[in-house]
Design a protein around this nucleic acid. Structure first.
Length: 154
DNA sequence: GCCAACGTTGGC
DNA sequence: GCCAACGTTGGC
């Protein structure tokens, strides 16, 4: 089992939006980065735990927990000319982009902010991809040690 | 709104 | 294959 962190802009899709879905479940569409796509395709499995991270907002940070509940399948929003992340090069018979389904588990009792995590880049979170300068991956692996350390901050 | 750090595109 | 131009991400 692998652990993950997935980013979403709360103005676009927040953890509250996910929690409000039927069964707390939704597809995670809009990933348009090959490295992130390959991670979803090759590494993500049903039952993997995921941090829900709010990015590009007033208080960037980890806000809750979810789990993968369906493995990678074509991101149909890429086929839709009216969709925000439409990609005309992606065809249904040969999809460029994939997504997984995720299920809401719970909010953290408080937001574990990026600001709070940053100092640990000098210690327990030295290799945490989220804290790497210039990192823009929206789907990234978290080691069991990193996962445990971060959750213990809650 | 600014801008650093990317990733992608396309001319050559 | 190189690399400049461009677009995007995301913190601040």
């Amino acid at each position: 089992m692998r652990h993950w962190l997935m980013k979403s802009e709360p103005n676009d899709f927040s953890i509250d939006n996910l929690a409000a879905m039927p069964n707390g479940t939704d597809h995670w569409d809009g990933v348009r980065n090959y490295q992130a796509r390959n991670l979803m395709r090759d590494e993500m499995r049903v039952g993997d735990p995921v941090f829900f991270y709010h990015s590009n907002c007033e208080q960037p940070g980890i806000v809750g927990l979810m789990e993968v509940c369906r493995e990678a399948y074509p991101d149909f929003t890429a086929f839709d000319p009216t969709a925000k992340h439409h990609d005309r090069k992606s065809r249904p018979e040969n999809p460029s982009w994939l997504m997984v389904d995720v299920r809401y588990l719970r909010h953290l009792r408080r937001i574990i902010t990026l600001e709070e995590l940053k100092p640990y880049a000098a210690g327990p979170l030295a290799d945490f991809l989220l804290l790497r300068k210039g990192n823009r991956l929206s789907v990234l692996p978290v080691t069991p040690e990193q996962w445990g350390f971060i959750l213990a901050l809650e």
